[in-house]
C-alpha cells in the first residue's frame, strides 16, 4: 500500500469514526447510535460532554497503560523480585495536583454551561408543560409579549404504538414508521408546535406524580413536580420533528408517554397559532351557546 493509500484509508476511518462519535447531527435516536446528539437548539451540553469524555479517555489510557506495563514487567514468572519501597511524597503530590488542575478546567466549562442554562430572561414566548399519568398537557401562555387565548391540549401516545405495546399483541414494532423513521413509542397524537429562532421559556409542573420532560435534541430534561413550577428555556435553530420521552419513573405507563416537538419557521407558527386561537373561540362560543339554553329554564 502506498503512503497515499494509507493516508486515504486513515482519513476514511477517521470520517467513519467521526460519524460514529458525533459528526452526524442526530436529532432523534438512530439504530446503533453511540453518542449523545449535538442537538438542534442554541444551548447544548454536547461540547462539554465531549471534552469530559476525552479527558476520561486520556486519563484511562495513561492509568490502564501503566497497569498493563506493570502486569507484564513485574510478574513472578518472569523472575521479578519485589522491591521494598512503599511511599513517595513527591509522586503523591503530583497525582493530587494534576487532577485538581483538570477538575478546575472542567468546572470552569460546566459553570459557564449552567449560567447560560439558568438564564430564562428575554424569552419571547412561554409554554406551560404539565405531566400527568401518562400524558402531557401543553398550554400556550404568551407569544411576543401578548397573552395567547386558550390554546392548550393533551398530547399522548398515538394509537398504533399503543396497540402494539400491549402484552403479547403480536403486532410488529418495526412497522410503525413516519417518513421512513421508526416512531414506535416515540410518536404522539398531537405534537407541541414551536417556532424556530425564538427564545422559548418553559414552565414545567406535575399534575399528579413527578415526571420529567426530556427531548434530547433540546439538550436538557426538567422534572415536572406537583406544587413546584420549574423553568427552562430553548431556542431551536433547525426546523424539524424532535422526539423525547418522560424520564422520571411515574408508574406503570412511564415508558409510554412520549414527547414530540414540531419546530416550524416563525411565519408558519404564527399562522398555526392563529388557527388554534380561532378554533378555541369557536369552541368556546359553541359551549356558551349550549350552556345558556340549558340554564335558561332553571332561571
Amino acid at each position: 500500500m502506498t503512503s497515499g493509500g494509507i493516508g486515504r484509508s486513515i482519513s476514511a476511518w477517521a470520517a467513519g469514526a467521526l460519524a460514529l462519535f458525533g459528526g452526524a447531527a442526530w436529532a432523534n435516536p438512530e439504530p446503533n447510535q453511540l453518542n449523545m446528539t449535538k442537538g438542534a437548539a442554541e444551548w447544548s451540553p454536547y461540547a462539554m460532554h465531549m471534552v469530559a469524555l476525552w479527558v476520561c479517555v486520556v486519563i484511562g489510557i495513561v492509568v490502564f497503560g501503566a497497569m498493563f506495563i506493570a502486569m507484564f514487567r513485574f510478574r513472578k514468572s518472569r523472575g521479578a523480585v519485589a522491591e521494598k519501597w512503599s511511599h513517595s511524597t513527591k509522586l503523591e503530590v503530583v497525582w493530587t495536583v494534576i487532577p485538581v488542575i483538570i477538575l478546575i478546567f472542567l468546572a470552569h466549562l460546566a459553570t459557564g454551561g449552567l449560567t447560560s442554562f439558568a438564564d430564562t430572561t428575554n424569552s419571547e414566548m412561554t409554554i406551560k408543560v404539565t405531566g400527568y399519568q401518562w400524558k402531557w398537557r401543553y398550554d400556550y401562555v404568551d407569544y411576543k409579549g401578548k397573552g395567547v387565548d386558550q390554546v392548550g391540549f393533551i398530547s399522548k401516545l398515538e394509537e398504533t404504538s399503543d396497540r402494539t405495546r400491549q402484552l403479547k399483541s403480536n403486532l410488529d414494532p418495526d412497522k410503525i414508521k413516519v417518513d421512513g423513521y421508526n416512531t414506535y413509542l416515540l410518536d404522539v397524537d398531537k405534537p407541541l408546535v414551536l417556532p424556530t429562532n425564538t427564545k422559548i421559556r418553559f414552565v414545567i409542573v406535575g399534575g399528579d406524580v413527578i415526571h420529567s420532560w426530556w427531548v434530547p435534541a433540546l439538550g436538557w430534561k426538567m422534572d415536572a413536580i406537583p406544587g413546584i413550577a420549574n423553568a427552562a428555556w430553548t431556542n431551536i435553530k433547525e426546523p424539524g420533528v424532535y422526539r423525547g420521552q418522560c424520564a422520571e419513573l411515574c408508574g406503570q405507563d412511564h415508558g409510554f408517554m412520549p414527547i414530540v416537538v414540531k419546530a416550524v419557521p416563525r411565519a408558519e407558527f404564527e399562522q398555526w397559532l392563529a388557527t388554534q386561537e380561532d378554533e378555541a373561540k369557536v369552541q368556546k362560543a359553541a359551549q356558551t351557546a349550549q350552556t345558556v339554553p340549558a340554564q335558561a329554564p332553571q332561571g
Binding site: 447510535q33 418522560c246 415508558g255
Partner: peptide
C-alpha cells in the same frame, strides 16, 4: 447517550 430513559419496559426500535 442515544436517549433511552431508565426504568422503561419497552423501547423504540432504534435501541434494539
Amino acid at each position: 447517550l442515544a436517549g433511552m430513559p431508565r426504568r422503561i419496559p419497552d423501547y423504540n426500535v432504534a435501541f434494539a
